[in-house]
């Protein structure tokens, strides 16, 4: 089997070109050479992969000539056509870290070549790029080289071979917003007891799930005149015409439904039901108005309290449905409602 081809990016310091006085060293391609940390990678790869070229670039040069440096280096990488690109490790060197992150992300995005880098968690390049490329956690100085290479090298090979990458805690990369399952060595209850003992003793512990931040949106301005307003109904309670014609899933919905209620003044047991699998469906199946209040809004429409009840309602199942799916449904539904001149939406959920 042919060896996996690797192109490695390092700075002037690790190429032993020089220190700060050589930081303006322009990008240089050294074909067929493994340089500095590249030797450690080569040793770790054994016969499975080889560094076919090393790109050396001064940290100041890269950051001060960002566009040109990026363009030149991308051209070098394209020409070498490696299976995987490695940048760094940069440890706690700020400009080097940003350069590694920038070029690794560009190689991956623009050339479609998987890329990996590594640096200290507090390196500014870490936060900037950890969600774009696999960013291995390293110590804060070059004394951590062996440890960094021992994580980066196998990860690079996995990426090159297109193998499944495990969870951050297994592979040693920084959490990147994508949750990945893995089998821990201990069962959850034992992990919980150990975490509690640490917390009680005031010792450091690491939560398995840091709390998220949720989106915020500006409230829309108030409606001035309800009697002329067009009101629409949207629900995550899974109300659908009897038989669930679009097969909306009982959990983890992959779609939403759009249904016409022109002339419908009451949702009955024979005409509507719920597709939702997360709550006792008996009540909603008996009378879906309990979730989607069409009957009351028709009355209010007749009485003139509202201008009009929109003739379409939108529905999905909130049960176990990911926020990302829900967001995508909402964006489409909102666009349709806007196009139809709807003034306000009543969203009901179960």
């Amino acid at each position: 089997m042919a060896k996996i081809k690797v192109v490695h990016y390092i700075n002037q310091f690790f190429a032993q070109v020089g220190g700060e006085e050589k930081a303006d060293y322009p990008a240089e391609l050294r074909i067929g050479e493994a340089v500095g940390p590249g030797l450690a990678f080569a040793a770790n790869f054994k016969d499975e992969a080889e560094i076919i070229a090393t790109i050396v670039c001064g940290d100041s040069y890269f950051n001060e000539n960002l566009e040109k440096a990026k363009k030149d280096i991308l051209a070098m990488v394209r020409e070498q056509a490696p299976d995987v690109f490695i940048a760094g490790p940069a440890f706690n060197a700020g400009r080097y870290g940003v350069a590694c992150g920038t070029i690794a992300a560009a190689v991956q995005e623009e050339l479609g070549i998987p890329a990996v880098s590594g640096m200290y968690v507090e390196n500014p390049g870490a936060d900037m790029f950890k969600n774009q490329i696999y960013m291995v956690v390293t110590k804060n100085n070059a004394a951590g080289m062996r440890d960094a290479v021992s994580k980066m090298a196998p990860l690079a090979l996995k990426l090159a071979k297109g193998e499944t990458v495990g969870a951050s805690v297994e592979e040693g990369y920084m959490p990147n917003g994508t949750r990945v399952n893995f089998f821990d060595k201990k069962r959850g209850s034992e992990r919980a007891v150990q975490m509690l003992l640490k917390k009680l003793a005031g010792k450091a512990f690491e939560t398995e799930y840091p709390m998220p931040n949720f989106d915020r949106v500006e409230p829309s301005p108030p409606i001035k005149d309800l009697s002329h307003a067009k009101i629409a109904l949207v629900t995550s309670g899974g109300i659908v015409p009897k038989g669930n014609p679009d097969h909306i899933e009982s959990s983890s919905a992959s779609r939403y439904g759009e249904y016409d209620i022109t002339g419908v003044s009451d949702l009955t047991e024979d005409t509507y039901e719920t597709a939702h699998g997360g709550y006792d469906p008996v009540y909603a199946n008996k009378d879906a108005d309990r979730v989607l209040p069409v009957d009351v809004l028709r009355d209010l429409e007749k009485e003139g309290a509202i201008g009009k009840l929109h003739n379409l309602f939108y529905t999905t199942v909130g049960n176990g449905t990911s926020v990302a799916s829900a967001k995508a449904f909402a964006a489409e539904i909102a666009a349709k409602l806007k196009k139809d001149g709807v003034d306000a939406v009543i969203l009901t959920s179960t």
Partner: peptide, 19 residues
């Protein structure tokens, strides 16, 4: 002091908020 045990619904791609 508390430790909580839960599970996650982070989407098929693992990219959504879990709780």
């Amino acid at each position: 002091k508390t430790v909580i045990i839960t599970d996650e619904y982070a989407g098929r791609d693992g990219k959504s908020q879990s709780l």
